[in-house]
Design a protein around this nucleic acid. Structure first.
Lengths: 151, 151
DNA sequence: CACAATTAAATTTTACACAATATTATTTGC
DNA sequence: GCAAATAATATTGTGTAAAATTTAATTGTG
């Protein structure tokens, strides 16, 4: 008695579609900063932490070096960050903001506002939704890691 | 008095990260079907509708032809769908399931179950979350479309 | 000290996303 | 009755994602 349910009933699709529509909604704003959405996320981390290794960025954003390395090179070529091998441990690459990269933070303040305004929801509702999504994400991630993929 | 809030407070990031972690959690299951996540979504639509134009698929999934055309060619090469120019209107390409593609539906039943089990939530909670995400998606999409990008 | 195991990045490959443009088919206006 | 507008796909180019492999540096153990 399996229920073959409709696309609209699949939570995974709602989340996937919503993620892409937020990114599209942000795009005209991000264009003015010369950033893509994942690049903006990297700067959010750096504005918060000041300086970071590629590894730490990957842990915060849940992205691997295969994604981050070329992305960081593009952000570096825009003059917003610097990438340097750590002197204590030559395996590590330290990423830090340039003055230009730091200065961009102020111009980026409008971006979270755009989500609030476009959402048609109250700040409390969005906060609650954020809590739910973080909880779901934790559960799904841990479940995934708890299953040995091969031996 | 701007509040420069943390990455963890950005709903956009929770949604973006959750979308990717669900897709990663699905992957071992999708591998057994020989599908990627977007390819699975295309099949969900076809299992529901039977047959579809590329245009209709794009409307259902919110994807454009630049994404769908190569994706559909890959699914066709696996023998799961057929792509044909419509005879009434030669501009349209009709996509329909092969027997093999139809047969895959049964083996895919376990995928929504995996989200339910991994989520640590009750079906009602997931349904509620789905409602919220669909509503947010609608608002964000319409807001985006209501802003003329250029003239 | 030696050297295997581990760790951090980078590289390679495949597959999306999506903007912009091109191509071809249909419809519409006059 | 045909030029112009519109519509549906396809193509191209840029930028992620993520698995798998490689390279280089560090650490643990005998």
């Amino acid at each position: 008695m399996e229920q073959p349910f409709y696309l609209k009933d699949h939570l995974c699709f709602s989340i996937y579609a919503c993620s892409r529509s937020i990114s599209r909604m942000y795009q005209p704003l991000l264009n003015q900063l010369g950033l893509t959405y994942p690049q903006y996320l990297v700067l959010l981390v750096l504005w918060e932490k000041g300086e970071c290794s590629v590894k730490q960025l990957g842990q915060m954003l849940d992205l691997d070096s295969g994604t981050l390395t070329p992305l960081l090179k593009r952000v570096e070529s825009k003059g917003l960050i610097l990438r340097n091998r750590s002197r204590e441990d030559e395996r590590k690459v330290t990423v830090r903001l340039t003055d230009q990269g730091s200065a961009l933070q102020e111009k980026a303040q409008c971006i979270p506002d755009a989500l609030l305004r476009s959402s048609g929801m109250l700040p409390e509702e969005l906060q609650k939704l954020n809590q739910s999504m973080k909880l779901l994400n934790q559960h799904v991630s841990q479940y995934h890691k708890s299953i040995p993929q091969k031996e």
